[in-house]
Structure formats: structure tokens, C-alpha cells
Design a protein around this nucleic acid. Structure first.
Lengths: 132, 132
DNA sequence: TTGACATGGTCTCAAGTGGAGACCAATAGG
DNA sequence: CCTATTGGTCTCCACTTGAGACCATGTCAA
């Protein structure tokens, strides 16, 4: 079965369940990790544990506010482990849990698709721009 | 190479490029299709072409405004084809382009991961809730 | 005839969300 | 004594999103 046919079948199944957030794992999860920063932070942590400030440096255009908030969400969802060393000043290290690491698989597929098809998207954009 | 190691390597590569949006296909694409509705609409269209009102019925909690806007973006990026029949009242049919269909592959992987690991995420959430 | 409904949107207004940057306590180093 | 570092929080403002009214045209039922 072609992937897009399989995906269409999945969608039909969700529609039967009424799209209840609690019952549709896909919407529930994708609404949370499908934001601007979550996937990027998972990728940043895929290379190994990092401290808060190291993450801030690794992802230069995230604000501290969103960094904190996104890491908290990833922690409560079990993607990330937060380890606080009560030194002064405090040292907080973030790392991927096994669950977070297992997510790297599908995420890597997405990344590879994006790299492989970026040219086509750019072409489509310029075609539309010319048409307008 | 484990997926998460490979992903970490990718990330290191991006960091070297300075995260320029124009140069990082991944951020460029994920910032656009990584929103609340794009992936859902692609899934809805994976089963075959649909008219505007059929999409609105298939995804009950999207507003017309966001439906129009998301479809426009998907169209300019080449994921979706828009076919207008100038009847009265007009009939507009949306369908996935080959590019859009090829995206169904990675998206399906993501969906399957979400279904397989949803329980673990729920457990993590309740553990965190108990701790607080 | 009059009214309701369907089509594929657009428009406006209110609510929500994200980014920028000030601020914090405590300590180490110059 | 002055400053920098740590891991954040808080406030304010801009931008995005959602809800819902509105539109022109034509068909169908009462």
C-alpha cells in the first residue's frame, strides 16, 4: 500500500472517532511537538546532553522564555530528562530519554525528506510568484 | 548509525551554517508545515481529492479562515493543487500533487510513532502531575 | 413569492501566543 | 568593588489565530 493511501486510511479512522483530542494520539502529540522549537531542541539534544545555556547558544534565535517553556513541555511528555545540580550557580543538564531518542527515527525521516525536496518547494514557490 | 546519532550530526551541520532560514531547508519547511493544520489537511487529502466544503466537514474544528490560508500556503509550496470549476456556485477541488503524496511517507512514520508511543507519553504526563 | 440553503470564500474584532529584554540571588574572579 | 555567569521569571508589545458575520449567485421547497 502506498504511503499516501495508508495515510488516507488512517485519517478516515480518526474521523470516525470524532477527532477527540484525548482519543487521537496523533493530534494530541503533533499539536505539542509540532511547534517551532520542540523538534529543533530534540535535534539539538540528539548529539548528547546539554546545559541550559549551551542549548541557548546552540539555537541562537530562541528566547529564554520559549526555551524554558518548550523544555518543560518536552519534560512532562517524557522526551527529555532534566537534571539539576544544586551548586551555586545552579547547573541544569538536559538529555533525551529513551522515548526522546526513539522519536529521532521518524524525525530524521522528515529531515531527510525536507533536504531532498527543498528544491522542488522553492521551484513551486517561484512558479506561484511568477503567476501572481 | 543510530537515528538519534545521525540526527545529532545533522544538527551540528546546521549550526555551522548559522541557521539561516534560506539555507536550512529543514527549518524553512518545518516552520511552514509544522503548524496545527497543514499536516492534518495533507492527511485529509491523502485519501483523494476533496472540495473546500468537504475538507471543512472532514476537519470540523478548523475555521474557514485558517482552512483557506493553510490551503493557499500548501498550494504555493507545491503540496496541493487547486482546481477551480467556474460554475455557479463555484466548485473548487483540492488534491495532493506528487510532491504532496511523497510527503505522506515521512508523515506516516510520524503518525505511526505517535500511535505506538502515546501510552508512554500519557504515563510520563501523569508521573509529572503526581510529582507536582 | 418568499424564504432557506449551498457554494467558496473575505472581513472584522477579540482572544491567545510568541519575542524582546529587564530583572533576580548568589558567587567567583579581577 | 565591579562585573560576569547560572537558570530562569516577569512584563510589555506585536503578531497570529479563532469565531462568526457577510457576500453574490442560483436552486429548491412552501
Amino acid at each position: 500500500m502506498d504511503p499516501h493511501v495508508a495515510l488516507g486510511a488512517k485519517f478516515a479512522g480518526w474521523a470516525d472517532l470524532g477527532f477527540d483530542d484525548a482519543r487521537c494520539p496523533v493530534r494530541n502529540l503533533l499539536d505539542r511537538i509540532g511547534d517551532r522549537w520542540s523538534t529543533l531542541l530534540i535535534a539539538a539534544l540528539a548529539g548528547g546532553p546539554k546545559r541550559f545555556s549551551a542549548l541557548a547558544r546552540a539555537v541562537p534565535d530562541i528566547s529564554k522564555r520559549m526555551l524554558t517553556q518548550t523544555l518543560r513541555t518536552l519534560e512532562t511528555d517524557g522526551f527529555v530528562h532534566r537534571d539539576v545540580q544544586p551548586t551555586v550557580p545552579p547547573s541544569v543538564t538536559y538529555s533525551l530519554t529513551p522515548l526522546g531518542q526513539s522519536f529521532a527515527g521518524p524525525l530524521l525521516n522528515l529531515v531527510e525528506w525536507a533536504e531532498a525536496n527543498f528544491e522542488d518547494v522553492l521551484e513551486a514557490r517561484s512558479r506561484m510568484a511568477d503567476a501572481a
